[in-house]
Amino acid sequence: MEIIEKAPAKINLGLDIVGKRPDGYHELAMIMTSVDLNDYVTVRDLPTDEIVMVSNSHRMPLNDKNDVYKAALLIKEKYGLTTGVEISLEKHIPICAGLGGGSSDAAATIRALDQLWNLQMTQEEMVEIGFAIGSDVPYCLNAGCALISGKGEIVECLNSRFGYWVVLVKPDFGISTRTIFKEIEPDKISRVDIDGLRTALVAQDFDGVVAHMGNSLEDITIARKPFIQKVKDRMLKCGADAALMSGSGPTVFALCRTEKKAERVFNSMKGFCKEVYKVRTL
C-alpha cells in the first residue's frame, strides 16, 4: 500500500511575539496562510521493523535529525508498532527558509501514516505528536489560513478566501530559527496588530491586510542579514502591494493584488536572486 500527501509551504502574514512564558517558550500570535509551493511525502509499508527514508534532495539528513523521520519514530513509539515504513520525500520548498517546509513535511507524514497504518488518530493526538517535533507542525496538519497562538499549539482556522498572488524570494543563505529566537527581547521588538489583521482577513479587506501585516522578528534577522532589506525594497519599488519576511527568514514574500503585478515583481527579482517563485495563496 502507498499513501501520498502534499506538504504546502506557508508564509506569515503576521507574526507577533507577545512575551516570554514561565516555561521558557515565547508566547506567539501569528497568522499564516499556505501557498501552492509543495513538497510531497510518500509512505509505503515495509516487512521489516525499520524506518527507511529517501529524498531527491542531497541536503536532507535521512535519519532522526529529519522531522519526517522524527514523526514516524514518534508514532511507532506511541502506538507500539513493529511495522516498518519507507518514506520518500520529494523536496521543492527551500530549506531553512522561513517557509515551514520541514514542519509541513512532518505534518504530511503524520497524516500519511495515520492512513497507512489505520490509526484513526484524533486531531488532539496528531497535534501532540506534531508539537513534540516543532511549534509550526500543529498548524501544518490542516494548513490554510489560520490564527496560531500559545506556543504554536493553538490553531484557529480563519474563514477567509484570501486568494492573492505571492512572489517568494529566497536569498542564497539560511537562517537558524533557534538563533533568532535567542536574541528576542520582548520589550524592545516591534509589535504587530494581529487582531486588526485577523479582522481584515475575515472581511476580505485587502488594503486592511496590507496595512496590518508585520513580523516582530524582521529587525533581528535584518540586523544579521541586511540583504533581506534590499530584497524588500526592490520588491516594493517593482510594484508589490506589500513585502514582508516570512517566519525567521530569510525568505521575503511580495503580496500582489493581481497576477500582472506579481509577474512584474517576479521578472524583476529573477535577476536579483536565484530562487524566485510566483505562487498563489491556498
Rank of each mutant, 00 (worst) to 15 (best):
Leu99Asn: 14
Cys140Gly: 02
Trp165Glu: 09
Lys170Tyr: 04
Glu275Gly: 00
Ser246Ile: 08
Glu263Thr: 14
Val167Pro: 00
Lys225Ala: 10
Glu5Ala: 12
Arg234Cys: 02
Cys96His: 12
Tyr79Asn: 04
Gly239Cys: 08
Lys10Gly: 10
Gly163Glu: 12
Lys10Leu: 06
Lys225Thr: 05
Ala243Lys: 07
Asp241Ile: 05
Ile194Arg: 14
Leu46Thr: 00
Pro22Asp: 13
Ile75Val: 08
Ala242Gln: 06
Leu168His: 11
Leu116Pro: 08
Leu197Ala: 07
Pro250Met: 12
Ile148Cys: 11
Ser149Glu: 15
Gly150Thr: 10
Tyr139Pro: 05
Leu236Pro: 03
Tyr79Gly: 04
Ser248Thr: 15
Leu62Cys: 04
Lys278Pro: 06
Ala29Gly: 03
Thr251Asp: 12
Ser103Glu: 03
Asp219Leu: 11
Cys96Gly: 11
Leu158His: 02
Gly100His: 10
Phe266Val: 03
Leu217Gln: 10
Asp187Val: 11
Glu5Gly: 03
Val276Ile: 12
Gly214His: 03
Asp136Arg: 12
Thr42Gly: 00
Met245Asp: 05
Lys270Asn: 01
Ala254Lys: 10
Met1Pro: 03
Ala262Lys: 11
Leu113His: 09
Leu73Gly: 02
Ile148Ala: 07
Ser190Val: 09
Lys10Trp: 00
Arg198Ile: 12
Ala262Pro: 04
Ser135Lys: 02
Cys273His: 08
Arg111Val: 13
Leu46Gly: 05
Val41His: 11
Pro61Tyr: 15
Gly144Phe: 03
Thr33Ser: 09
Met32Ile: 01
Asp172Gln: 15
Leu62Glu: 05
Val202Ala: 09
Glu153Met: 02
Val18Trp: 02
Glu128Lys: 10
Met245Ile: 08
Ile194Ala: 11
Arg178Gln: 15
Val166Arg: 04
Gly163Pro: 05
Pro186Thr: 14
Lys188Leu: 13
Phe131Arg: 07
Glu128Ser: 05
Asn215Ile: 11
Leu81Tyr: 03
Leu168Asn: 07
Ile93Val: 14
Ile189Ser: 03
Asn66Asp: 14
Pro8Lys: 01
Ile11Asp: 00
Thr221Ile: 02
Glu90Leu: 13
Ala7Leu: 07
Glu125Phe: 13
Pro171Arg: 14
Ile148Phe: 06
Lys270Ala: 04
Ala211Arg: 14
Pro138Gly: 06
Gly102Val: 14
Val209Thr: 01
Ile110Phe: 02
Arg234Gly: 00
Ser88Tyr: 15
Gly84Ile: 01
Ser34Cys: 08
